[in-house]
């Protein structure tokens, strides 16, 4: 199982701050495709992904128990 954290407009699109996904050993790219199919996201194409609080690339592998965060373009400061 992996935990997916959502922020900013992504929370509002899906109506929750986090998702529990019953999958593992998949790439970031595969997870994005899965989520875009299963949940009402407008788009995850401009969204960065972090695995366990570090930015990840689209072919990085997500393990069981990982925390994956979807990070829209940031606007702090």
């Amino acid at each position: 199982m992996i935990k997916v954290l959502l922020f900013a407009h992504l929370q509002e699109e899906v109506g929750t701050e986090s998702l529990s996904i019953e999958r593992s050993n998949l790439t970031v790219k595969s997870l994005i495709q899965y989520l875009e199919k299963e949940y009402p996201f407008q788009s995850l194409q401009k969204v960065m992904v972090a695995i366990n609080e570090s930015y990840a690339k689209e072919d990085d592998l997500i393990q069981d128990g990982d925390v994956v965060a979807f990070i829209p373009p940031v606007s702090g400061g």
Partner: peptide
């Protein structure tokens, strides 16, 4: 900060 810190 405006590039990498996850704050919105």
């Amino acid at each position: 900060i405006k590039q990498i810190v996850p704050i919105w």
